[in-house]
Design a binder for these strands. Sequence first.
DNA 1: GGAAATCTACTCGGATACCGCGTGTCCGAGTTATGGTGG
DNA 2: CCACCATAACTCGGACACGCGGTATCCGAGTAGATTTCC
Lengths: 178, 178
Amino acid sequence: MAAHYGAGVEYALHSLLYLVDRSESARATSTRDLADLQLVPPEYLAKLFTRLQRAGITASAEGIGGGVRFARSPNQVSVLDVVHAIEGTKPLFACREIRRRCALFPERPAGEKIVEVCSIHAVMLEAQAKMEATLAGWTLQDIADRVNTKLPGEFTAGVAMWLDKRALQRGKNRKGSL
Amino acid sequence: MAAHYGAGVEYALHSLLYLVDRSESARATSTRDLADLQLVPPEYLAKLFTRLQRAGITASAEGIGGGVRFARSPNQVSVLDVVHAIEGTKPLFACREIRRRCALFPERPAGEKIVEVCSIHAVMLEAQAKMEATLAGWTLQDIADRVNTKLPGEFTAGVAMWLDKRALQRGKNRKGSL
DNA sequence: GGAAATCTACTCGGATACCGCGTGTCCGAGTTATGGTGG
DNA sequence: CCACCATAACTCGGACACGCGGTATCCGAGTAGATTTCC
């Protein structure tokens, strides 16, 4: 029932996808607008972006005209990067080394001779590596491109207009306005 | 910090590995002995074995001489089978279809035209498939063989003796108690 | 001596308590552009 | 007209409440085998 990756990852990824379409703009995008657009908790989303910033994925501009933008190109940010930024390096399996706590050898556990990792743990690590390799193979630019080929124009353009209108609604005259 | 697969999976897998070495024995193995051997909660381990039974991995014999044994050969039980039996089909990512709840289209969501799965979800599903394929590629017999090549004999034999002694000790206590 | 009753040990299944963690909210602090104010 | 100041809007970071789900425990019920009891 409960998934490995939570809602934070989903919020962050979708928000970043919207940001990809706006990465050309000179203006930063407000996290509040991003939250209102997707109907997700604004404060929570803002907190998520602080983690993305710490990971070097986005950069934040403080102050009244502030907001977030990409710190590096979206085609150099993988899905795994985002996941690690939000959730940290979450293991698929937390091995407790049960075999070493065997009732047979209370003082000197059997694991004395087991220098390598537990065999079950090894399998899990292999599975996790395969999974993360897949996530590392997709960049945000890849996904954004794929989405844009399925939703031709009107949706992306509508979102861009909506975000611009929101930004304009706050500040009236700004140099370099779109 | 929190892993995708919990302690239940670890308990079950290690217990089943011990069972592989005893799969030749005609007698069933008590779940209580299995728990005491590994110093894990006996009631909890017993509950886990009921799930393994429902999945058709093990079979239980009730009554005084009861216990558990494999329902099918250990080389036909994959790690993924055990994981599914214990944790159920746990998704890597629970997509909430955020893109459909866009503030732009409150009545008719944008997802109206999105017949396929969300692109982010698709990436996650691909990663999950890779992971599960790895887990499905390893059988309990494979892991048991690998362990036994690293721990030559004495450990496995010691465990077998310990379990046999426990089973025998119960019979003796019964005689003495009368 | 054999059949039935009893007793013990085991698994099964539900109910429940505990607790850590993800999710979401709130608030104060720091920062920056805008607009107003006074010289 | 220009310099200065107050204000609004935004991000940052910590603290905290809430709820869910995994972990663990307890108890009653059902079952099978060994022992005892009775005829």
